[in-house]
Design a protein around this nucleic acid. Structure first.
Lengths: 199, 199, 199, 199
DNA sequence: CATGAATGAGGATTCATTCAT
DNA sequence: AATGAATGAATCCTCATTCAT
């Protein structure tokens, strides 16, 4: 029974595992998955190369954990925005808030976002995680509306697509920086479009 | 003077260079940039590994050329759609056509699209190319409208964002396949939204 | 004073040391010396990896102990067969019995036998042990005959060689399984040959 | 199609492949399979580590090739001894010759013999090769006798077992060196025994 | 005595790139 | 211009052994 990955119970161990994930997070952000080697991760985490394999099956396993952290960090606050929603839904406010948050998280995580997304194509599990995430968000929001008694035609399609648009815009906003674009104008466009979808 | 990359003049040479690019195109599509090695590219192209470095500075150089071909293949026909545009602009028709074409090119090039996009984050030149491309399209379309005497408020922002939405949807359409989504419905949403932007 | 190997006095300790040896015995049998790692030995023995080095200098030291156990288990009963020998020696019976026992022990210990023998070539101590063992057996049997007043020309050579033949046959019998060989016939050949040596 | 092993056509290449095999042969002899690393093999062969994997799938592949060479070197001359056999068979002479040759080849190849045999237990292919070899020898000799019109009861068992005995003796002769054994006496015993088998 | 986390040297293998022909 | 053999640094991962607790 080789390749057994320790499931750390000790506080110190958990902290060490987290340090490794953090190091991976940073390095994948900085130089991408393929630009990072395990020795570097270990060094950055302040541990030996060997122990990395005490906590993770392999390098890819670190990637998966980084992905989990990323999702937690980026999407959990996003989902929480819908917890306090009340009727009548003030779409104007919520949409604006969501876009602001999307921009903010994109800004704070732009490099790791790129790095992870670029793996989605080649690594099945990573791709699946992203899809699962979109599903979770779409379904959760739909359920929320349903619970509030708000009926929306083609709710799933609208929610999903609104998300796509917002993502796309946030990405645009944070990365591309086409200098001929007035992003304030564009942001208003997004708000209008998304609002129109739901009202 | 080492590392001089031959600019092939002979027909045979040009054809050989293209074969290499094609091989790269295929392999990057199939297994991604990091999953491909130069020996494999050479073999697929029917040339020796050595000569690859006669035509290309390094492996990345092949990537850049593949990217060029990709852009040519995918975006040139896209741009041509606007050549025959006449006033009054039939937005309904043109938007529908564009979406159909976007879906079609996404379908035909889904793997290479993934592969190249995943490089945009880690390779500056690749990222720059994508941005330049978006610029070219946005500006060309804007100019076309201008030439036709069609005045649109915030034309650049609208065109750019319309493109983003269509890209996003095409991607969604071709890749994700969330089973709870009715993509026909979504497509109509996209058409409506984009039309509303311009009318 | 580092690296001092504890000589366990406590009963519990002795039992623990034996458990480690047993674990080594099993694992060396199953996957060979190089296919076994110390962590696995510790786990199988139900002890920590660290304490293994409390009882053994290093991994090889476990091997040596396993070898001792092996010799004890396999050859002691063999030697005991000669204890009750009486004159006139009934070679027919004793040879037959010895062959049967050799086959039986080979069968019961085939894997560890392989594992240990394969180390004899590369590890001097292991090789020496095997030689010492053969010496012990040969000399003990010779002495027995001498004590019984049985005189045999070139007794040492005959005994030693008889042993070789029987070993070789047992090995053949248990391992090779050439399907064109009738091992019953072969066994009779062995008995005849060995008998002829001594009568 | 990765991991393609060059099948060298060029003279220079064949010579290089042989140099690697020879280096493996030597090193496996000197320090065993597990005591040898590929870098060392490459160095000894005067090539780079990389090219080793141009000629061999992996380290084990080198072992297999070494085994082939070993078999060729050791057993081919052995088989050739039977080519010129005529009736009536002079068992006395041929057996004596075979034993002499067996001793000689054992002497010349004692270390590699040990190294390869020690792998037979853990590597299925190596084990199978040894068995196939014994089969080939046994069957070839049997056929020879048959072709010569020499009829032997239980020929296969006798030939096989004679081989076993000779092997065993040669091994004894070359390796063990129990100092109380007179190997000249023992050799005569072997000759007598084997002769008695066939006459 | 005991634990099991930690170490880090070592090893097999890959692959972008160069070079002799 | 072309070949493909050759290079060797780099990488992932293992595991015997040590050490803090």
């Amino acid at each position: 029974m080789k390749n057994v990955v320790r499931e750390p119970q000790q506080e110190r161990s958990i902290e060490k595992k987290n340090r490794i994930i953090d190091a991976g997070y940073q390095l994948f952000s900085e130089v991408g998955y393929y630009g990072t080697n395990t020795a570097e991760i270990a060094k950055r985490a302040g541990v030996s190369t060997g122990i990395v394999y005490g906590y993770f099956r392999d390098k890819r396993d670190i990637l998966i954990c980084v992905l989990e952290i990323y999702i937690e960090r980026v999407f959990d606050p996003f989902l929480k925005m819908f917890d306090n929603l009340t009727v009548p839904v003030d779409f104007d406010t919520i949409i604006s808030k969501i876009i602001d948050m999307a921009i903010k998280t994109h800004k704070n995580n732009r490099k790791i976002h790129e790095a992870l997304h670029s793996m989605a194509g080649s690594d099945e599990a990573v791709g699946a995680q992203f899809i699962a995430l979109e599903d979770a968000i779409t379904l959760k929001i739909a359920k929320k509306f349903s619970n509030l008694g708000v009926n929306i035609d083609h709710a799933l399609e609208k929610i999903h697509f609104a998300m796509d648009i917002i993502q796309s815009f946030s990405h645009e906003y944070v990365f591309d920086k086409h200098d001929y674009i007035d992003y304030t104008v564009m942001k208003d466009m997004v708000i209008t479009i998304v609002k129109d979808l739901f009202i």
